[in-house]
Amino acid sequence: MISVQPGVFAGVGIADCTPILVADPVTRVCAAIHAGWKGTVARIVEKTAKRMIENRGSNPADILAYIGPCISFAHFEVGDEVAAQFSEEFKTRKGAKWHVDLKAANEAQLRAIGIQQIEIDPSCTVENNADFFSHRMEKGVTGRMLALIGFQVA
């Protein structure tokens, strides 16, 4: 979701998937992105940021990005069918399961289009389940967190 109007906030609900907030303080355009494994494979972060650049005139050098709390590499176990969709640099086999790093995969998409100002929250929704909702940890019976971003009306 992209917001181009000050006072109108963009937001996404999450509970293990990766929330990514991007903002261009020069053009005052911002976006909230929900990047689970399917969105990450579909390059939703890259596509959204490119829209800001191509349609709204944002310069990648001006864009600030925040990758929020989500399931961590240590806890994101997937099967062969999901792991096959990620490049080697974002997955590792541990026993019978693969582990995928959603934060690193999305950071790479941002960097590939020239966005360098990226803050990555180290929190894991599974490890820190007392502070965050986790779909996996709570077996689907959980709430959702809301990640919001916007600019004040001048």
Rank of each mutant, 00 (worst) to 15 (best):
L102I: 07
P6A: 12
L146I: 13
Q85D: 06
V22Y: 08
G36K: 00
D121Y: 07
L21H: 10
A83Q: 07
A15I: 02
A32L: 04
S58I: 07
G11C: 10
V26G: 02
N106R: 03
Q85N: 13
A49E: 01
V12A: 05
S123P: 00
E77Q: 14
G36N: 15
H99L: 13
A32W: 06
A147F: 12
I63E: 04
H135I: 00
Q109H: 08
Q5M: 12
L110P: 00
W37V: 02
A104C: 03
V12P: 02
K50M: 15
D80N: 09
A96L: 12
F9E: 09
G36S: 13
I118V: 15
P60Y: 12
N55Y: 08
G39M: 04
T40W: 07
I113V: 11
I118R: 05
V82D: 01
L110W: 01
V12Y: 06
I120P: 02
I63F: 03
Q5H: 08
R144C: 13
H34I: 09
A49W: 00
G143L: 06
R136Y: 09
I71Q: 04
E138D: 13
E138A: 14
S134C: 12
A61N: 11
D121W: 07
V12C: 12
T27H: 10
F86H: 05
N55D: 15
K38F: 07
F151N: 08
F90G: 04
K139G: 01
S58K: 01
K97R: 15
V78C: 13
A31N: 07
N59M: 08
A130Y: 10
A96D: 15
G150C: 10
F76G: 00
G39P: 02
P60V: 03
L148S: 11
P69M: 05
V78F: 09
T40F: 08
I118M: 10
V100R: 02
V22S: 03
I113C: 13
G57E: 01
T125Q: 03
D121N: 15
E89C: 12
V82N: 01
V12N: 03
A130Q: 13
M1I: 11
E119C: 12
N106W: 01
R144T: 13
E54T: 11
S123A: 15
A74C: 00
G95I: 03
Q152P: 02
T27L: 04
V4I: 13
G140F: 02
R28Q: 15
C30E: 07
N129M: 05
D121V: 04
V22T: 13
E81L: 07
I115Q: 11
H135K: 10
K94A: 13
G7R: 10
I44N: 10
F90M: 11
K94M: 14
A15Y: 04
M137A: 11
R56S: 12
G150A: 09
A84M: 08
V141H: 14
F76C: 09
